[in-house]
Computed example of a mutant assay.
Amino acid sequence: MASIACTPPVPAPDDAAGLHERARGALLGLAVGDALGAPAENLRPSEIRARWGRITGYVTDHPCGTDDTEYAIFSGLLLARHGSALTPTHVEAAWHEWIADRAEGPFRGAGFSERGTLENLRRGLAAPISAQHRHAWSDGLAMRAAPFGVFAAGRPAEAARLVAIDGSISHEGEGIYGGQAVAAGVAAAMTGAPVPVVIAAALAVVPDDSWTARSLRRAVAVAHRGERAVRCAVVIGGYPWTDLAPEAVALAFGAYAAADGDFAEAVLTAVNMGRDADTTAAVAGALAGATRGAAAIPAHWATAIGPSRGRCLPSMAGHHVLEVAELLVPAPPRPAAPLPCASPPGEPGGRTSERGTGRGSPLAGYADSEVRS
């Protein structure tokens, strides 16, 4: 059996307010990267340059997320419902409840791995057989893995365990490894760990002789030389599909390493490398957003992200990635304001003393963790 390295020491999560900021950064960063990268998906760098020069921001008037954002919301809501008690049965039931047994949007369930999974589920197949299709190695799990790292902040091994449970419905082998690398990396980044520790945490949860690990190591080894070197190190140029998990995950970590965790630089590096640009930029954005927090995301990029439109998963329409962040890492309650001074009871103007009840739940105003129909 292939060996898996021991998970390196990861700093303990910082204060609750800091964790909340990083959770928002991770998931908003994912959505921003997805929206920035969507127009460049499946393009070569030369094609990107011919159309836009170098992409430095949104190139559409109405940027929005794709299946990457909607499936991340789906997995985040599922995780908020079950937490560490998540099982394959829970995941399979959610796929039926929220996707397979509903009418689909124009994207027809999204990418190849999702299509294969839905076809198997609708034929009555269950996990792990539902994951046995021709695209089980795709980056469809990696694109929705960030919520697991947010939930298991500072616990990369737990993030990897949980995302593998989610992936057991739809992926096998390298497809699972890609999701585990992303989830573990985000879990480490949620503590403010430096970039090399984030990368080491990702490598520690996948077999060291796997395609995913080899590609990731090659990407980060040349990251100091820039995006062209990263792309040349891992891209399978003659292969017709761009959603290979080992390739996409390596490109994302390479972009993150090349930028030394800087959000804008990491995401734009991923976008301008093309290939599965929405996914690579989404993953790079999740890593950098967790590392630096939501405040590091340029405001004009962040404000363009609205609630999901449900173009791929109608059941996700109306949900915002920040809603998921609040469910997974609630904001710490604010200290109750001191009560005003009052005259003792019985004196003129006096009133009976009241005990402060404090503020309501930090989740007040949010839907519960079950998806709204």
Rank of each mutant, 00 (worst) to 15 (best):
Q180A: 15
A204W: 01
F253C: 06
G173W: 14
A219L: 09
D208C: 11
V220R: 07
D208N: 14
M273R: 01
R161V: 04
H224S: 15
T191L: 09
P246Y: 04
T269C: 12
G238Q: 14
P207R: 07
Y256S: 08
A270G: 01
A188W: 05
L162N: 00
A188F: 06
D260T: 09
S210C: 12
V198D: 01
E247W: 00
R161H: 10
P240R: 13
A245L: 12
A219S: 09
G226L: 05
L251P: 02
E174L: 11
D260I: 02
G237K: 03
V271L: 03
A257G: 09
V186P: 02
V230K: 02
G274F: 00
A164W: 00
P246H: 09
G178D: 08
L244G: 02
L162W: 04
Y239H: 14
E265K: 13
P207W: 05
S210R: 05
L244D: 05
E227Y: 01
V197T: 15
T242L: 01
R217M: 11
T212R: 06
V267P: 00
A270P: 03
Y239D: 14
A221H: 13
A250E: 11
A202R: 03
R218C: 14
G178F: 10
R231T: 04
V182F: 11
G173M: 11
I169F: 01
A245G: 12
V234C: 06
C232H: 13
W241V: 13
S215N: 15
V220H: 03
S168A: 14
A252K: 08
L203K: 05
R161M: 05
E227W: 00
T191M: 11
S170C: 13
A252R: 01
A189R: 07
P196N: 07
A270M: 02
Y239S: 14
S210L: 01
L251Q: 07
T242N: 13
F253A: 13
D208K: 08
S170R: 07
I165Y: 04
R228V: 12
I236C: 14
V198A: 03
F263C: 03
H171N: 11
L244H: 07
A183Q: 01
L162M: 06
V222W: 04
A270L: 00
A183D: 01
Y239I: 00
V220C: 08
N272D: 00
G261I: 02
E172S: 10
R214E: 13
N272E: 00
A181K: 09
A213I: 06
R275K: 11
A202E: 08
V235R: 07
D260M: 06
G238F: 05
V249L: 09
V235I: 14
A250L: 12
R228H: 13
P246G: 05
M190H: 05
P246A: 10
V182W: 02
